[in-house]
């Protein structure tokens, strides 16, 4: 069993306590009420026509960032969090290219920049505590718990208020699913929510080609050896034939 967060747009009052608690828990210098993520704001509340939705790392079950990182600086832990190790990171920013949610933020103004994003309060979780954002939410719009249970709860809420919600638990299957689950309104889905439309985990797209590498390498190598032998033989035969023809000619 792994942990998850359920965010429910219908219950969100837009107070921004989650964002503030996150900054406090991670000692971030980010400003109050940010409108977008940055290196010092790991979660924001986005507003569209009176509707609200949180934007933060979804902690994918099969994260694109972790599979793309050449040095394994990003990792999915069994408990749920996708964590970052700055000591391994080389700063190639492939994770920025890979992330379907456009989550990672960089310390562009630093000469030793790190990749910054929500860490699912991994340290608090180790103490058996809930995430800072879930603790701080006064409206129970952000709930921390077992992902499986939250998923059931999310579906129950969709069934209870079908006219309010977009009929989908985002994060259940999109891009292979994520630890973070979001239920929200059709307006948000239309205007503010970024989600992969495919259900295939994104790392599988890479794997389809990547797993062929040994076979391609071996196949190309074998083929070239064959060509080397054949073309060598062809030249030898041609040279021999020329020699024979010359001898024949000389003989006459």
């Amino acid at each position: 069993m792994s942990k998850g967060i359920l965010f429910d747009s219908r219950l969100c009052i837009g107070c921004g306590n989650c964002s503030e608690a996150c900054r406090e828990a991670h000692h971030l210098s980010g400003k109050l009420n940010p409108t977008d993520l940055d290196a010092d704001n790991f979660t924001v509340v986005k507003r569209v026509d009176g509707y609200k939705v949180r934007d933060f790392c979804r902690h994918c079950l099969k994260p694109a960032c972790a599979s793309s990182c050449p040095v394994g600086a990003l990792k999915k832990t069994a408990e749920g969090p996708v964590v970052y190790d700055a000591n391994k990171c080389i700063g190639c920013r492939y994770c920025f290219v890979a992330c379907p949610y456009r989550i990672p933020r960089y310390q562009w103004n630093s000469t030793r920049p790190q990749v910054r994003k929500c860490d699912f309060c991994v340290e608090k979780q180790k103490q058996g505590e809930a995430t800072a954002c879930a603790d701080a939410c006064p409206a129970e719009a952000t709930v921390f718990g077992e992902r499986e249970e939250l998923l059931k709860e999310a579906h129950a809420r969709l069934e209870a208020e079908p006219q309010w919600y977009f009929p989908k638990v985002f994060g259940e299957t999109e891009g292979g699913g994520s630890s973070i689950l979001i239920i929200t309104s059709p307006v948000i889905v239309k205007k503010a929510l970024i989600y992969p439309t495919i259900k295939t985990p994104l790392p599988d797209l890479t794997a389809a080609a990547h797993n062929q590498v040994p076979f391609v390498g071996f196949g190309v190598g074998t083929m070239l050896c064959g060509i080397w032998w054949l073309s060598k033989r062809r030249n030898e035969v041609a040279a021999l034939e020329a020699l024979l023809r010359k001898k024949e000619f000389d003989g006459k």
Partner: peptide, 12 residues
């Protein structure tokens, strides 16, 4: 780092 830290799933 790619010399010693390997993520074998990474195309990079």
């Amino acid at each position: 780092h790619p010399l010693i830290y390997w993520n074998i799933h990474s195309a990079m």
